[in-house]
Design a binder for these strands. Sequence first.
DNA 1: TATGAATGAGAGTTCATTCAT
DNA 2: TATGAATGAACTCTCATTCAT
Lengths: 225, 225, 225, 225
Amino acid sequence: MSGLIARRATNETQKEAKRDAILIGARAVFSETGFWDTSMAMIAKRSGLAKGTVYLYFNSKEEIFLSLTSDEIETWLDLVDRQLLENGPSDIDEFINLLLVSMEGRDSLVRLLTLLHLVLENNVTYEAALNFKQNLGRRTLYTGSLVENALQFLQPGHGVSLLLNIHCLVVGWGQMSNPAPVLKEVLERPEMAPFRVDFKESIRVSLTALLYGYKHQNRSSGLSL
Amino acid sequence: MSGLIARRATNETQKEAKRDAILIGARAVFSETGFWDTSMAMIAKRSGLAKGTVYLYFNSKEEIFLSLTSDEIETWLDLVDRQLLENGPSDIDEFINLLLVSMEGRDSLVRLLTLLHLVLENNVTYEAALNFKQNLGRRTLYTGSLVENALQFLQPGHGVSLLLNIHCLVVGWGQMSNPAPVLKEVLERPEMAPFRVDFKESIRVSLTALLYGYKHQNRSSGLSL
Amino acid sequence: MSGLIARRATNETQKEAKRDAILIGARAVFSETGFWDTSMAMIAKRSGLAKGTVYLYFNSKEEIFLSLTSDEIETWLDLVDRQLLENGPSDIDEFINLLLVSMEGRDSLVRLLTLLHLVLENNVTYEAALNFKQNLGRRTLYTGSLVENALQFLQPGHGVSLLLNIHCLVVGWGQMSNPAPVLKEVLERPEMAPFRVDFKESIRVSLTALLYGYKHQNRSSGLSL
Amino acid sequence: MSGLIARRATNETQKEAKRDAILIGARAVFSETGFWDTSMAMIAKRSGLAKGTVYLYFNSKEEIFLSLTSDEIETWLDLVDRQLLENGPSDIDEFINLLLVSMEGRDSLVRLLTLLHLVLENNVTYEAALNFKQNLGRRTLYTGSLVENALQFLQPGHGVSLLLNIHCLVVGWGQMSNPAPVLKEVLERPEMAPFRVDFKESIRVSLTALLYGYKHQNRSSGLSL
DNA sequence: TATGAATGAGAGTTCATTCAT
DNA sequence: TATGAATGAACTCTCATTCAT
């Protein structure tokens, strides 16, 4: 009996392993070749599977992307949660530091977030989109509540708003600080200095102003976020 | 007669007119079909020209996009400049109102900015990228200086930084508030309410906090942006 | 059943068969339409395959050509070898007869050789060129040694040189004796008589003089080829 | 009156000059880019004329090629004629030397001859082909007769045959000694040594054997060429 | 479940040729 | 006569997707 169950479990495990193999392969290829220039064939080859097999697990390149992004966001949120619970930052600067540290070495997350919006425009089924959004929605609500705990001046519900705001900043500054090769070359010209941007520093400055602004507003009035 | 586009452009003015015809066609197709799904053939057909003719004026779909974006940004900056000079907003809320009004009806600008970063990753020559950036760079520096005049608490050079910041917010909130069709459907579910976002309102809130934050910082200390 | 080409080639033999089907189709189209005016689409259609399928087996029209040429040359060399071993020609005239007989009905070989040099100028990868040359190189060295056996007055190594010389004559006279349609029409005019050329006869005459010349030189002196 | 004639003459001269400009431009582009990869647009640009203008003088790229080739062959034949008349070579080796010297620095002639046969397969009108062949035909008959004078063992009419034979050798060895870039790389491998070929040396060896062979045959019998 | 051969629509791009100016 | 803008057919090659094995 336990043998049977084990065998079933093993099969499930094997399927999970194959899914993971695809995701791992896809992550590697995306980061090397860029999302738009990678084909399903490349992902299959990198995963050590046949093209047809990949289609047994994902309906499209876009859904692979979605799954990958979901994982990366969750991992990051897990880390943020842990830090919020452990370190209990009590002021804005500590909170921002915590965030910035949590983002270190997560270039690929930034890249994925940057693409996310556009990837969702094609080849994504309702089911996949729903699943993605519900997962992350729940996850975000939870982290949002932790954020509200950390930053006492936030009104209820504004933890999530802040997270969305951070998402915007990450996407916006992420794009600007990771220009395409041609642009990079252009930006190296001396007159382009005002438009060269450092991701971490930009996030820090914007977020600092934003949070002090919120705090100030909430103190001086009941202005809603 | 002058309104007609010449069958055969024989001077610079007529060529400019033909270029514009292509840009107008392209804008229409981009907005209906989305950038990624429009082909040069579609642009040509919509402009009433042969495929080969389009290639006489632009090297690629991407360069058409760039030209279009450049035009739209400039038109918008022109408007902002005019408003700043005429209305001379003297406080943050007036400034933000001016900005928001200037953006009304400019959905296509938002859409273009949202794509800009990714479009630049393909088929754009150094020359095209340089031309684009230099034009806009100069333009932005000018508007930046006007902004500094309007918001006296800004340090020199921070006008441009603020414009970049606004760019980030526009891209970030623009993406979130214009979800792809599948996502839109998903977001209509009741539990998704916290993630439904209104562009104008979100920009207003973020920008307000950001600017009050800046002002506060600059008043209380010499903290650099 | 074995004669049929499998819908889907699942093993090496079937794949070889499909490759052959493409080559057969290509040969037909080349000879009807001429190499320069045939497209991959035409080859695909003639082979009863989809365009994409042809690309699974060959990287370009040029590589199909190369493969075809390689096959035809090898078949011809095989025949020459056999004849040399069986008939053991012992004088120049017998040798030349043997060669001429071996070329009968090989118009397509002549045509291919005539184009070979130019086809190699485009779309041929190093690998394809290397493979082609190594195969034929080995093959030629072998036949060259048989030729040396047959014509005792040849010095070691001169069998291959003679084969190259023959190649030159075949290409040169092949071009002249197979003029393009317009030229053919022009050559029919009476005053063009001196420039009308018969392939077989021209080869015979040139080769005879060439070989008697060699023989003479080698007898009277040690003059190297 | 003379003014009118002069003006007409000038116009004719100008037309001739324009024709020449095209030919000079074409020669340059052909030698840099190769015949197959040059377009009419490139020839026009290089000649400093508009595309349409080129079509006023030539019907196609191929006819430009033909005209160019005709010129180069004639120039070469002129040189050979002069040498034959001045130096009056009386034996085979002197004759061959004369020929080889006359070919020095004429790589472009060799290249043109190599392509001639294939170029004639497309876009050449009957008139152009006729004109080409008649010109060169006459020219060749004359040089042929001079050759017969120089090499006394040649029968009447065999001067032209010899010239055709030389044409064959030039084309054949010309192709082999000027391999396409890929082939060149392949031929640099050590095992390819037997297939590396020097144009001048190969021509000399082949021609020597050929002529001694002819001479020998004609002495010992009445065997026709 | 896994494979990878086969498909074929369609994208980008070029260029000989025409013809309004 | 000269121009060069405009054309559009044609070509190569890719790749998501299917499906026989």
